[in-house]
Design a protein around this nucleic acid. Structure first.
Length: 379
RNA sequence: GCCCCCUUCGUCUAAUGGUCAGGACGUCAGGUUUUCAACCUGAAAACAGGGGUUCGAUCCCCCUAGGGGGCACCA
């Protein structure tokens, strides 16, 4: 029996769907589709303070615009907190986790000391063996995972290859906070396991998390999924993508007049390639995509290439679809209402007639609109 | 500071223990076009540096440099 591939895209709703997240979603989607599997969606909303309803909507909206569909209902991580706590209690009962009564001040001092001694600024494991009868008054304990301190944790990553982490560099992480809520690394492991995820494809900023998660999987006696940590996207200057580069939400790209096909084609070629193929249909991508061909170095975001691709797809897209997209786009432009009024039904039909010529000249939908300005001019 | 990852034209990348190191975007020069765009043709443009291994290294190993990621009761 061949195991069905189940991937997942698991954004935290603390902002829009940014371009890196979009690529991660695309890779998960492609892999699932390529293997005839499923892609699930999980909203990691356990950070109550930063998660917003608006962000959830923006992310779902962004995925829909990119035409990346998911299977089944999205899972909201927050709703699974009880289950997460149960697993933490189970680990505690089995001696694979322990209560830690260290205060915030103690932890700060500990970090200070570790840094001074040139070690990783992690928890020193003081409560690992200490008896709870020594617990100080007035401290509600957290539950820490009893991580192995000897040997190595090895990740057999489909993109990064074999990555070895010495266990001595990994401390006993908190899995359940003093308020009884689970932390990220526990929730992720429990959810990925319960959701039957077979392949975890995500940004390589999670590579070290993969080691802690692997340790938790082992402690629980669960099979670890296959990991694939893809490099992050950088800005044109090689620095981490930030707002002044392209770390905009996908809706910003929509507003700039890019087509979803073009963005998908651009994104898939960032870090992944198939010989000399540059322009490829979604069917081609699904047919050709595979994890091993993903490169290991970060790629810089290049608007010029995106524009070129967009121009290509603009020319290849039927006029009717372009018209539809233009009409939708107008409404979300800064001066949208004004412009829509100015164009009017008459303007739209003029534009439609002029479209074949306009399409060839433009790189984006916005440019088509700009170049069509003369059609709407009041005499 | 400690741990992990990365390094081929400006950018995205391909390939190979022996190649003129290939393609795409961008750039430049022509062609076509009333103009612009599109399109066509051509050009410049890369193996980070240093040691090895080898008859021979861009490719294998080590070191250095540079870049990135991680080291929370964030995800």
């Amino acid at each position: 029996m061949s195991a069905t591939v189940v991937t997942r895209f698991a954004p935290s709703p603390t902002g829009y769907l940014h371009i890196g997240g979009a690529r991660t979603a695309l890779f998960n989607w492609l892999y699932a589709r390529a293997k005839g599997g499923k892609m699930l969606l999980r909203i990691e909303d356990t950070d109550r303070a930063r998660s917003t309803e608006g962000a959830i909507l923006a992310i779902l909206d962004g995925l829909r615009w990119l035409e990346l569909d998911w299977d089944e209902e999205p899972v909201y991580q927050l709703s699974r907190a009880t289950r997460h706590r149960e697993v933490a209690e189970q680990l505690l009962a089995e001696g694979k986790a322990y209560r830690c009564y260290a205060s915030a001040e103690e932890l700060a001092a500990m970090r200070e000391r570790a840094r001074a001694e040139g070690r990783s600024p992690g928890y020193d494991g003081a409560w690992r063996e200490r008896d709870e009868s020594e617990a100080p008054e007035g401290i509600t304990p957290v539950i820490r995972f009893r991580a192995p301190h000897e040997g190595d944790t090895v990740i057999e990553d489909r993109v990064q290859g074999r990555v070895v982490f010495p266990n001595k560099n990994l401390d006993d992480l908190v899995i359940l906070r003093s308020d009884g809520t689970p932390t990220y690394n526990l929730s992720v492991v429990v959810d990925d396991h319960d959701m039957g995820i077979t392949h975890i494809i995500r940004g390589d900023d999670h590579l070290t998390n993969a080691t802690r998660q692997t340790q938790i999987y082992k402690a629980l006696g669960w099979e670890t999924p296959i990991f694939a940590h893809v490099p992050l996207i950088h800005g044109p200057d090689g620095a981490k993508l930030s707002k002044r580069h392209g770390a905009l939400g996908v809706e910003a790209y929509r507003s700039m007049g890019y087509l979803p096909v073009a963005l998908r084609n651009y994104l898939v070629r960032l870090g992944w390639s198939h010989g000399d193929d540059e322009i490829m249909s979604t069917e081609d991508m699904v047919r050709w995509f595979d994890l091993e061909a993903i490169g290991r170095s970060a790629a810089r975001f290049d608007f010029a290439k995106l524009e070129n691709l967009n121009g290509h797809y603009l020319r290849a897209t039927p006029d009717a679809e372009i018209m539809q997209r233009l009409k939708a786009l107008v409404l979300e432009l800064p001066n949208g209402g004004e412009l829509a009024a100015k164009i009017g039904p008459e303007g739209w039909s003029k534009l439609e007639r002029a479209l074949p010529g306009l399409k060839d000249r433009a790189k984006t939908l916005v440019e088509i609109l700009d170049n069509a300005e003369y059609l709407f001019a009041k005499r």
